[in-house]
Design a protein around this nucleic acid. Structure first.
Lengths: 230, 230
DNA sequence: TCTTATTTTGTACGATCGTTCAATCTAATG
DNA sequence: CATTAGATTGAACGATCGTACAAAATAAGA
């Protein structure tokens, strides 16, 4: 997959209608990719949902793979910004303990996907799909790894005695659990009972904080103050 | 999806060759479904990998959806047996603490997928794919929920004060983290460094034990003896 | 307003999809 | 061995896939 094809420079600004059309197409693609996966969603389905002829999808989105990339990257920037701003604010406040750092990573995602515009809900499922498939490794790394490494470094600074491998593994467990709320919430409810999202968020924070602490080898407990700052 | 279609009764035992052919086709389907997903793997690809003409796939596997179901269900029984035997042995020994119960659930899966026959590796990725997609809810529930409920009940008995919702959520977090080792091990290594599987297993057990304990509200720590038995 | 870059439309192409089927071959059963 | 249920083969079905493209409509910029 070679996605860095240089496109010929524009000579005119796109019309307002064209911008709107493009967004409509990306929204439709986002929804259907999240619903049926990359191979399950057809260009024609996407065009039909967007209410445009098939040819327009290629015009605005390029090839199907490029369209997939564009849809994932479109909201990744805003998500990264929210996460990093939350982390910076936390560090500035001086109360950057383990739970706080975890919350800065998972809560912006869950808040956007569950309380943001309806499109964000589809985006959450889409990220879950893309993250589980090595086929999209290039895309997900480009979109999410910079922020991930920022948080990994912060956690490593909070608990410097932890082996890097333990932090990496714990981080992936945390991400998987977070994404499971988007992709497998039905499963949680099937195994227990309907839960409101705030309760599940609390479970996730408790679960990941304790899990991280255990793997970082300091045996920190819920309720205790985790070791703070380098 | 209606999969309980009654097939006409057999009048003859299948030949040894036919049994072998069927297994070959299911192996090929398992590999390609795991590699490319349900929609990404074509019947023709499966037939080609199995070395048989296309028509044979339908003959032995039925429709594509039936084939998918068959492939997932084929190994689910053995997996369930191993998990439940391990749990029974643990309970009989009287040392059925939280970590032990978790180990009985995740270790058979990881041992099979990482040290069993090569086909099991594909099966692990396939389960990860199917579990993340609500489209296969019916299949995954039929194959995995009975065992899951057995373990949920056991955990609930170990820590009766925990709300059922917390157990269900924690269980899904655990399953997601376990499946992430199959589907996203490359991500763990990209974020830290290559890890051998035994080390990652240890991280997973630590992470989930502490996570469960935190959500079950007793604040049990690694190193301490968790509350044991009713 | 005029020019023309850009967007929109509709159609068509070749490839591949899941599935069906009649003919042929194999081997389980009596 | 003879019978024939079941397994195998290869071709073909209609549908849908991603993509390309010429012609028409639109609107940005001079």
């Amino acid at each position: 997959m070679d996605l860095d094809l240089r496109k010929k420079p524009r000579q005119r600004a796109p019309s307002k209608r064209a911008v709107r059309t493009r967004e409509t197409i990306l929204d439709a693609a986002e929804f259907l990719f999240a619903e049926r996966g990359f191979d399950g969603a057809s260009i024609r389905d996407i065009a039909a949902r967007a209410g445009v002829p098939v040819g327009l999808v290629a015009h605005h989105g390029g090839s199907k793979e490029e369209l997939f990339f564009t849809v994932i990257a479109r909201r990744a920037d805003e998500l990264a910004r929210l996460r990093e701003e939350a982390l910076e604010a936390l560090v500035r406040s001086g109360r950057d303990d383990l739970r706080g750092v975890i919350a800065c990573f998972v809560l912006p995602f869950l808040r956007l996907t569950y309380q943001g515009q309806p499109q964000w809900r589809a985006y959450g499922r889409l990220v879950a799909i893309a993250s589980a498939d090595e086929r999209w490794r290039e895309i997900t790394q480009a979109c999410f790894d910079p922020t991930a490494n920022l948080f990994l470094d912060r956690i490593a600074r909070i608990l410097p005695q932890a082996p890097r491998g333990a932090i990496g593994a714990s981080f992936v467990f945390m991400v998987s659990s977070m994404l499971a709320i988007c992709a497998s919430r039905w499963r949680i409810e099937a195994l227990s009972a309907p839960q409101d999202i705030e309760t599940i968020e609390e479970y996730l924070l408790d679960f990941c904080e304790a899990g991280f602490a255990a793997n970082l080898g300091n045996g920190a407990c819920e309720g205790q103050d985790p070791v703070n700052k380098r």
